[in-house]
Design a protein around this nucleic acid. Structure first.
Lengths: 221, 221
DNA sequence: TAGATTGTTAATCGATTAACAATC
DNA sequence: TAGATTGTTAATCGATTAACAATC
């Protein structure tokens, strides 16, 4: 599915995801005026175990104290240093349909470090217009724009039958990470990381397990 | 994170997800006129191993043949019987913002068995209007509508600060499965299954691993 | 000091992969 | 029959959990 982290200290896919979650939770805590936080507090709001939080945080290289736990400000800063690229990374969005537009709106102003700096679509009605603060280019201009802006990340929100071609085009011009919403498995070079968000699969999982839970409740095996 | 399948035959979360994927791929194969398929063919397009496909398919209780592999039509039917609720399940969507509207459009006509039958929002401009073919109700009417339509599944696309309250309201009126797009961990009763789609976390993961891949390529440890 | 929490190692758990006899 | 593929069991792998000495 997704390419494994081949770096030496073996920081797993799941740990990276949780670090992103912890940071968001820490920002909320900071807003509420908390100076320090213990692993079990973070675990409580993140929905995992305290041991897991401690192990995850070891990866970022900032140690807590047995008395105060972790200093919120410094922990946020450490996670930032660990996760973020210095100077930020621009993101391209390909496919400005309903979903693409919603995602443009969603990410606008959310993480300044990961800003969608260019959108692409084939539809002449969208090309050269600004949508949720983002300029929409023609697909034909993708190579030039991506190269010019030094874009290395992209979000794919095109229909399923166009996704593979888009992924190949992006890989060719230097994009190294794809967030794919199209319901197909993308075949990309080994140096490109793909993360899939498959809404249909997720909803079907919910339907299955909700039904299972219902059946259990009514006393079935 | 998500509630474990506590049923006896131990059909894992991941297997259920892959079955959903296999079904979609099989539908494409069927459209292309394929009558039979081997585990390694399915594995090739699904991006996993043949052994994994065979093990997953054991769960649905339909056996293939060493000569022809699996019969596409019957396999689709077997997966359908295993995954789907007989008669279909209605889904509620709560929060008709940009993302909610995009999801309404996305699921319209996609899986007839999982149809969004009601949407809810607080905004008076949306209430009592039909959006992407779905009637939008006032939040205050949620309990009555959910009970009347017998809805057991819901998609949450409200802002983060409203999500917990919405989840509790849904749990109270009989909803047993939630697909949550709000970037918070929901606290729900143990008989409610929650699946999270966290777009910010996913994008941050892509950014991290893309950067890692780039660093490796340039010869760093 | 006593005590709760930390970093870190060992034990457990579950899922993936490999292997192989059974089968058509 | 010979051969590729199947269902199924055993081995491997990785992540989670439990345990515990070190620490402030």
């Amino acid at each position: 599915m997704a390419r494994q982290n081949e770096g030496n200290p073996r920081t797993s896919d799941k740990t990276i995801g949780r670090l992103s979650l912890y940071r968001r939770l820490l920002n909320v805590l900071q807003g509420e005026g908390h100076r320090h936080v213990f692993s079990h507090q973070l675990a409580g709001i993140a929905g995992c175990t305290a041991a897991q939080v401690r192990r995850d945080l070891m990866a970022v290289g900032y140690s807590g104290s047995p008395i105060h736990g972790y200093e919120v400000v410094r922990l946020i800063e450490s996670i930032r240093e660990f996760l973020d690229a210095p100077g930020g990374q621009g993101v391209a969005l390909v496919g400005v349909g309903n979903l693409g537009k919603a995602i443009l709106a969603y990410f606008t102003g959310r993480r300044p470090n990961l800003r969608i700096v260019a959108a692409f679509d084939n539809d002449a009605h969208k090309v050269n217009r600004v949508i949720h603060g983002c300029h929409c280019h023609a697909m034909a201009d993708l190579p030039q724009v991506v190269k010019k802006l030094g874009i290395r990340l992209a979000i794919i929100t095109v229909p399923a039958n166009a996704a593979q071609e888009v992924a190949e085009g992006l890989s060719r011009v230097g994009v190294r990470g794809l967030l794919n919403f199209a319901p197909v498995r993308l075949r990309v070079p080994p140096n490109v990381y793909v993360e899939d968000i498959d809404m249909t699969m997720s909803l079907e999982k919910v339907a299955y397990f909700a039904r299972l839970a219902g059946a259990e409740k009514e006393g079935k095996p």
